[in-house]
Design a protein around this nucleic acid. Structure first.
Lengths: 244, 244
DNA sequence: GGCACTTCTTGTCGATCTGACAAGAAGGTA
DNA sequence: TACCTTCTTGTCAGATCGACAAGAAGTGCC
């Protein structure tokens, strides 16, 4: 009963925020990791993040602050959303630490800014993390897995892909986002048709053009739509040989 | 840098779990709410939930415990997943309380069990909550909105709908789930074809039949698939009169 | 039993969408 | 100019979708 809900207990825990910051660099999906300088897990890579500054700091605000402090990125200019909470007892050997993980998606970026807290941050290919050739501290592998899956899923139904691109982009750049994040290949001509068929997904950005080899491509910018209809469904990886 | 991450601060907060428990009763989508007996928000409805029991209790475990204590439901038999964290400073007038909201989906249920903590729990139609004719305590309206939207979205791409049904069900029962949760109407014949076209979504459950008026329907049970491919896309509510 | 009524299930049909592919357009470079 | 690259517009057959007809299999009523 309500008495239970209101039993005022001192179940205080330490709250942190962790960040899965994804971007595309050199045609690979990468995640920003920092090398730990202290025990536990000294020398291992970990997600950027940290404790709430004080009791009055909001959780999303803390994530934005860490984004700035540890990665040198401005939360105002990129996609940032809550991912999930990780609070198993024992996930941190130092005590009961509950972490609110966030997913950030950044467009092509300058190198992690030296001279800041982000100096020892590195953009590690996501597949190096997923195949565990780059071991992560704490339960951060699980967090990265969840973050990547979230990104893959949201590519289908939302305009998240545009967050990987700059202010303006060509459709083949957008296609590369889908191909790299989904780890699949798409037909450029069908992609072209499909993307332009989704109302409000992309809007022509002037007659400006830019080039890098072949015929110059038209530029687009993100449209007003956040929910894609119809969605761009990723090809079924488990298509053949399925039981009934 | 890592020194920042490891600064050991006493940012302790009080951690609670809250539950958005959805079910279908009398052809309406309903959420389980409890009337608050204490200040603040005395007399208002609130989501079931409560503080972690102690520092060693896992978050999902706490949600399962509250599910049992406050709703008389067994977490082993129904769908339970983490929804999101709500931790804005000021959301609870008593102090810095961070709540991990969970989404539970229950099949047709007996009345809230009298004589337990769940005695004053009531199944309130979700639309009464969404249109604010039933005001909720704290930021629980926001949590219900997010929970319902999560359920609506997961109906498209996962087998969540089967969690609203019993062990076995007819396809028209399953269709009612989609219609009520999405607040839309579907053509029974097309639904029939589509559902059976998704590999592993539903499996025939013996030649058993059951009836209630017309021709007896075949019984099905949930299949092994959790991810629907192809997805069941909900009809576009913003279809016509859209700009380009 | 015969008939009306209900709901379930199988089909049909045209419009639309999808995936595979051809071919032209518009630049760069040798 | 010839060739290469990439972008963009089409084409076409097969799959899918939404709307709908019609038969199947029960119940209840006379």
């Amino acid at each position: 009963m309500s008495a239970m809900r209101d039993r005022w207990q001192s179940s205080g825990v330490l709250l942190t925020v962790d960040l899965v910051i994804l971007t595309l660099r050199e045609d690979r999906l990468r995640v920003l990791l920092v090398e730990r300088g202290n025990e536990p897990y000294q020398g291992a890579f970990a997600l950027p993040g940290g404790f709430l500054r004080d009791r009055s700091e909001g959780i999303l605000a803390a994530a934005a602050r860490e984004l700035s402090e540890e990665a040198g990125l401005d939360a105002g200019t990129l996609h940032l959303e809550q991912l999930a909470v990780y609070g198993d007892p024992g996930r941190d050997p130092r005590g009961r630490v509950v972490s609110v993980a966030h997913l950030a998606v950044a467009p092509r970026l300058p190198e992690p800014v030296a001279g800041t807290d982000a100096a020892d941050a590195r953009w590690i290919p996501v597949d190096h993390v997923l195949d565990e050739s780059t071991p992560l501290a704490f339960d951060h592998l699980k967090i990265v897995i969840d973050g990547v899956e979230r990104a893959r899923a949201k590519l289908e139904s939302t305009a998240l892909a545009t967050a990987f691109c700059g202010q303006t982009f060509t459709l083949s750049e957008l296609q590369r986002v889908y191909e790299v994040v989904w780890d699949t290949r798409l037909d450029a001509r069908n992609f072209y048709r499909k993307v332009q068929g989704v109302r409000g997904f992309v809007m022509p950005a002037g007659p400006i053009r830019k080039t890098e080899g072949g015929r110059p491509a038209r530029l687009f910018r993100a449209g007003p739509t956040t929910v894609l209809y119809p969605p761009l469904v990723r090809p079924d990886r488990t298509a053949q040989g399925e039981d009934r």
